[in-house]
Design a protein around this nucleic acid. Structure first.
Lengths: 343, 343
DNA sequence: CAAAAAATGATGATCGTCAATCATTTTGTC
DNA sequence: GACAAAATGATTGACGATCATCATTTTTTG
């Protein structure tokens, strides 16, 4: 009924609890024979260390840091918000969370933020990996000193973090393509693609997936040259308006990046005549409204709240050197006007 | 830095830790004045009870029961599987999970299973609420004896459980309608709808949402009379084949319930000529294959694995009388052939 | 075989909370 | 002011693991 304790293991193994402890925590100075006996007892009893008791005695709480871009974009705002809620809830589990903000898209801001962490003594760090190529050294330093590291949203080299939590952006692009394709029902189409910057890894992955599917399965749809908006609503509005005004015959729009306010403005001004489908990424006040009034049709959403929860659960586990909790793959939500989340 | 303990609270309140304990655990026999002082100290220090220590001292583990239908359907198989994985992972947190299986769609099986629980002493129970109308009495008994109760997948009366975890089926139906509509690109269509049984709450909810959207936004699509399949692949195959053979001009299929093996067979036999879109519910080996080879286009999936994880996290929290962990709404995944989860 | 080295056992404090006991003080009431 | 009732304080031993210390035993080595 009740689970066995370290004492039970020691007794069954015929050693003292001190030795059993030495084995389980790899303190060394144990005879090979004793190690085997203890391990056998562990297996036989199905002993699992009581982490709560362990942490209590070690007077350890989970000390975590989240390195996030400022709340400039709605997307990161949602992350911050969820983090705050979660932090409150996790206080009773001795999880303390510090938030370190940095300027998004500033190449060196992330590096600076991460460097600052090496002095402190966090158990785990999660960071949004935009521009992490510049931040390899501080990451390496962190990991070398035993800190567990998780990258969020955008992944980088495998050996600069313990895990990545985020969506598969190529898959997201393919999904968008399929939706655009389906909405043409075999008709001929012409498509406008807009992107923030073709340099960003996540954006280029999306475009790659998008193009692949469109080319293979929907040759009836022609892609016009990509609009680069630098994720700025204004540029988006102007460039897109121009396209819509000058070229008739556009049937679809896909925005890979952000700047959706501009996109929505442009469509509202020009009307949706001839446009059979419009797909964007991320849910925000703006895109939500646009979905509800039919200005756009689909918002593919990363669900940052869920990513954040995952990161928290994962860090808690790996900080204890436990295997990551079993969790199914992150699939971006496909929001239509009919399945928007409440409130 | 480190969080305050009960002792700190007592000291600040100017009472003994015994009294502080009496206040926090509502043991009674405390003067109103002392209660106030302690509560004030709690607020001032931001004291949060260390649950790990509390549970350790109470020698309490989380003793949970999951009452699930047998693994007859792929859907429940996925739940069982996830539950097993999670159970393994949660052993170190002193969470023990018992699984009680019952025969799906047997009205009294659930009642019997739940009745059996009143003898035992679980802290929390999750159950799949198919046919819970018949099981109100045992649920009431459980809750009366302090057991926390969560219903999964299909909800019932509010006061027979503490929380419901599952999708909004009406929303799922609306989503299906939107996808079907989009895929018609304004063309005229004729739609075949199949359902397991119109009695099942979740199925009827889906149909309700589906019809509402189709009627309002896609009057160009005609709905032919619903095929009732009792979720049996064979009936599905025969009835659907008949329809496809006899009536030309069908443009879409929507299956509200299960029995997708039959649906897939029928379409493969008849070919997809003229069918512009085919939407079903739940991902399984069968529907996954069908998505990949283009037999069907969309599978709306409840993601039982996620529901299960949610239930676990929720039970752990409410068993401790904590507020439910902050988690965003469950949105069913929309699977296309391009965003299927790996492996 | 003796000395050094390695392995082991025994013990006890600690973490924060719970739960129980018993002694003492503060109330309220007639 | 006596007396009961209520409130409080003080104390203690779990709970399960960690970690350090010290004494003792076993093994290795020359």
């Amino acid at each position: 009924m009740k689970s066995p304790t370290l004492h039970d293991v020691a007794r069954l193994a015929g050693v003292s609890s001190a030795t059993a402890d030495r084995v389980l925590n790899r303190r060394g100075n144990v005879a090979e024979k004793s190690v085997r006996k203890v391990e056998e007892a562990v297996n036989q009893l199905g002993y699992v260390r009581n982490i709560a008791a362990a942490n209590l005695s070690k007077k350890r709480g989970y000390h975590l840091a989240f390195v996030l871009p400022r709340r400039s974009h709605a997307f990161f705002g949602r992350m911050h918000e969820q983090l705050q809620k979660a932090a409150l809830h996790l206080k009773s589990a001795r999880v303390s969370i510090d938030v370190i903000e940095f300027e998004a898209f500033d190449i060196h801001a992330l590096e600076a933020a991460l460097s600052g962490l090496s002095e402190t003594n966090y158990d785990g760090v999660a960071f949004v990996g935009l521009g992490q190529e510049a931040a390899l050294k501080p990451l390496e330093a962190l990991r070398a000193s035993g800190v567990k590291v998780v990258s969020l949203v955008s992944d980088g080299p495998q050996d600069c973090r313990d895990h990545y939590i985020g969506i598969d952006n190529e898959k997201a692009g393919r999904t968008a393509a399929r939706l655009v394709g389906m909405a043409h029902a075999g008709n001929i189409g012409r498509l406008i693609v807009a992107a923030g910057s073709l340099d960003a890894r996540d954006h280029s992955d999306r475009i790659k997936g998008f193009r692949a599917v469109l080319k293979r399965d929907f040759p009836n749809i022609e892609i016009t040259p990509v609009i680069e908006t630098m994720d700025q609503p204004r540029q988006m509005r102007e460039l897109l308006s121009e396209r819509l005004r000058n070229d008739a015959g556009n049937t679809a729009i896909y925005n890979v990046g952000s700047g959706n306010e501009g996109l929505v403005d442009a469509i509202r001004m020009n009307g949706r005549d001839g446009l059979s489908v419009c797909v964007v990424h991320e849910l925000s006040t703006c895109t939500r409204d646009a979905l509800e009034d039919g200005t756009i049709d689909v918002a593919i959403d990363q669900r940052p709240e869920i990513e954040l929860n995952r990161a928290l659960a994962l860090l808690q586990a790996i900080v204890d050197d436990l295997p990551p909790p079993p969790a199914p793959e992150l699939i971006p939500a496909i929001y239509l006007r009919d399945n928007l989340p409440n409130e």
